[in-house]
Design a binder for these strands. Structure first.
Length: 330
DNA sequence: AGCCTACCTGGGTC
DNA sequence: AGACCCAGGTAGG
């Protein structure tokens, strides 16, 4: 099967930072092949970026249109898949213009954006986004990824198999809502998040799932945030992640340990050395970045977040560029 | 309202 | 080797 092409300059989309920067937990990079494999919209994708094009293949899909003609995927469904991909990466958003704007406003951004060009805010699916980020609390990215895969494997639908790997869709809310889910997830190593997942799923189902999510997109950001926080296991930070990543509220700005550190070190020195981020500090930090970057502050913040992640820090041969010194409590 | 702590688990560090 | 600490926080006090 040959690659399909989508016009998109290299500088406009950096796959590694975008797919592996803590937005989605379902993408994997194959170094040998220089390609990314991942799942969204009940479809398994392979992606690679070239100078002028984003190239993609659909490995398998449960979408209606594909079921009829499995062998003619590329031809018949090209439009559908291309549309999905454009939407997922928000390719209609002119990133260069915003990078320029954000750079002018902020030296830290200016420094970060050289290496972290083309970091895009994905337009994810709300259900996957919500449950993935319930898993994210007080947790490492590597473990979050394995938990999300477990959710898919145990509660999602099989999409296809390739090279000995079976790919699953992210489960529907209904599958996660039955009472036994909590104990099953405990068994699978989800810890205290097991209860949050099952309870939230049951609650969302009661609020009529799709309708509820659609309503959240139509609300104002702050309103949607409060509504999300009614769910058990969703606090200020996860609510902001969901607003930003799947509800199209780009001014939402999740304040986690990374962002707190960045803010305290660079902008708000009076917040240094605090044990934990209080509600008050949280909004102060968010408002600071919003006043700095404007309407799409959450997007700009994602670029900074990316630059702060350990795995993207330069690992040159020199020893002295260790990412961050461990802070001792003295 | 604002501050404190327990919480599952696994990987990293000393 | 074994006790730390920490990780994209949150609920409940």
């Amino acid at each position: 099967m040959s690659w399909n092409k989508l016009l998109c300059n290299l500088r406009e989309l950096q796959l590694s930072g975008t797919l592996n920067g803590g937005q989605s937990f379902r993408w994997e990079y194959n170094k040998e092949m220089d390609e990314w494999t991942g799942v969204f919209s009940k479809t398994v994708w392979k992606l690679r970026q070239r100078e002028e094009f984003l190239q993609y293949k659909v490995i398998g899909s449960l979408l209606q249109s594909i079921v009829q003609k499995k062998n003619d995927v590329e031809f018949d469904n090209n439009g559908v898949f291309e549309g999905l991909l454009k939407k997922y990466f928000r390719l209609d958003f002119n990133l260069s213009d915003y990078y320029t704007k954000w750079s002018e406003k902020d030296d830290l951004f200016k420094a970060a954006c050289k290496q972290f060009y083309g970091i895009r805010m994905l337009a994810q699916e709300p259900v996957e986004n919500l449950f993935s980020f319930i898993c994210s609390q007080n947790n490492h990215i590597s473990r979050i990824s394995s938990m999300v895969e477990k959710l898919c494997k145990h509660y999602g639908e099989e999409i296809c198999e390739q090279d000995g790997v079976t790919y699953y869709s992210f489960p529907d809310v209904e599958k996660l809502s039955t009472p036994k889910v909590e104990s099953e997830l405990r068994q699978l190593g989800f810890g205290y998040r097991a209860k949050f997942i099952q309870k939230s799923a049951a609650q969302i189902l009661e609020w009529e799932g799709e309708k509820w999510f659609a309503g959240l997109q139509d609300m104002k950001y702050k309103e949607a945030r409060l509504e999300l926080m009614k769910l058990c296991g969703i606090g200020p930070k996860v609510a902001d992640c969901i607003c930003l990543m799947s509800l199209n509220h780009l001014e939402a700005l999740p304040v986690d340990t990374h962002v707190y550190q960045i803010a305290a070190q660079n902008y708000l020195p009076h917040l240094r050395g605090k044990k934990n981020v209080t509600e008050k500090m949280y909004s102060e930090i968010g408002d600071h970045f919003r006043s700095l970057y404007g309407d799409y502050a959450g997007w700009a913040h994602t670029v900074l977040f990316c630059a702060d992640l350990k795995k993207f820090q330069q690992t040159t041969d020199s020893e002295d560029i260790k990412p961050k010194k461990r802070r001792k409590k003295t």
